[in-house]
């Protein structure tokens, strides 16, 4: 799966949990999910669950903790997809 495709799918999922749409408009690889997008930390786990469903993968706890920025998250998903394939 292409990196760009993963990123687009991820952003679609994230979008549903963002209350600050202006911040979402400026989303980039370095965007921090909690700090920049002000996503409620409890919802981070919901994003992980949605990602798991969308990509048909399972992300372990250690990897979840590394999903801080958009880039970290895309990397994690790509690694999981590769490991599952």
């Amino acid at each position: 799966m292409e990196r760009e495709e993963v990123k687009n799918k991820l952003e679609e999922i994230i979008k549903q949990y963002v209350t600050d749409m202006e911040a979402f408009g400026n989303i980039s690889e370095t965007t921090d999910l909690l700090q920049d997008l002000k996503i409620n930390s409890a919802h981070l786990i919901d994003i992980v669950l949605d990602v798991e469903e969308a990509f048909d993968i399972e992300i372990d706890d250690e990897s979840v903790e590394k999903m801080i920025t958009v880039k970290d998250s895309v990397d994690t998903i790509l690694a999981c997809v590769k490991a599952t394939a």
């Binding site: 409890a42 919802h43 786990i45 919901d46």
Partner: peptide, 9 residues
């Protein structure tokens, strides 16, 4: 692990 944040609240 699939319950998510909504069940408790």
């Amino acid at each position: 692990r699939r319950l998510g944040s909504r069940v408790v609240e």
